[in-house]
Design a protein around this nucleic acid. Sequence first.
DNA 1: TCCATTATGACAGGTTCTTGTCAATATGAG
DNA 2: CTCATATTGACAAGAACCTGTCATAATGGA
Lengths: 147, 147
Amino acid sequence: MTKLNPNGKAFTELVLEVFRLNGRLLEAGDRLTQPVGLSSARWQILGVVEHGPITVAHVARIMGLTRQSVQQTANSLEKEGLIEFLENPHHRRSKLMAMTPEGRKALDYTQEQHAVWANKIGEEHDLDCLRAAVDVLRQVSKSLSHE
Amino acid sequence: MTKLNPNGKAFTELVLEVFRLNGRLLEAGDRLTQPVGLSSARWQILGVVEHGPITVAHVARIMGLTRQSVQQTANSLEKEGLIEFLENPHHRRSKLMAMTPEGRKALDYTQEQHAVWANKIGEEHDLDCLRAAVDVLRQVSKSLSHE
DNA sequence: TCCATTATGACAGGTTCTTGTCAATATGAG
DNA sequence: CTCATATTGACAAGAACCTGTCATAATGGA
């Protein structure tokens, strides 16, 4: 029977905290976005599309999700007029997602709400500690990506 | 238009990293548990039940999930014989989840796999950094719980 | 050019978690 | 004891992810 060593134990605690925090963050995100008919998932995609027309598959790669998952959300965003699919000169089937004025408006609202919220929560914590934690999470993420 | 200050920006980056890491961890957990018919979600519940008979609602509170979500998973675990519902002397409707020998066997396997994996990943990172990150995540979680 | 490989969207089906509702069961104040 | 309130399990519906499969479209080597 293998036992957890100190590092293994600390990593395990990190895992549990990530799960718990993830839940709380999704909840907060949904609350932030709900007034304009968004949600955490839809907001994240809109936040990528904001930087310029991009394909579904590309967004999936950036966000670490599956193509199909992003496709579903994208289709739903299009149906509600928050994004539109533009012809892609480089690929006939793979259309480019682009923001519509309505999408822009919804995202503007959400980003404003987010900034207020993030500043408030951020100020409750030490800047260096926050940054150090981000670094650790990035390193761990990297560890997991090529295991 | 409110702008993100340094703390707000650092917190936002933390949020994005938590989302990304959460995905990777679920993936790893599913891989670990799949050989014995478990999954990340089922494993987590079994891991709580391991410490003694406990009600569905209590587990939900511990894990930060909804009652209904835990209930569904618990019902499915019972159907497959990994847990059983014992009569609760303190509450007629709220039965106590308890591990069966089969549940014990599945959990033993998974915990062994987990220990090997967690030790391996843990050793790729500095112990103090891991612990500091856990602390930050706990603090942030706490910030969010009473906002 | 031809063809194997890869990338993509569409579709089907499944898991996990969510919200909302309901009836049954504690619990506690008066 | 009584009754409002809180807790609980069951059930339904939906969101957001997943895997697998398929046909179509792009790509790159022979």
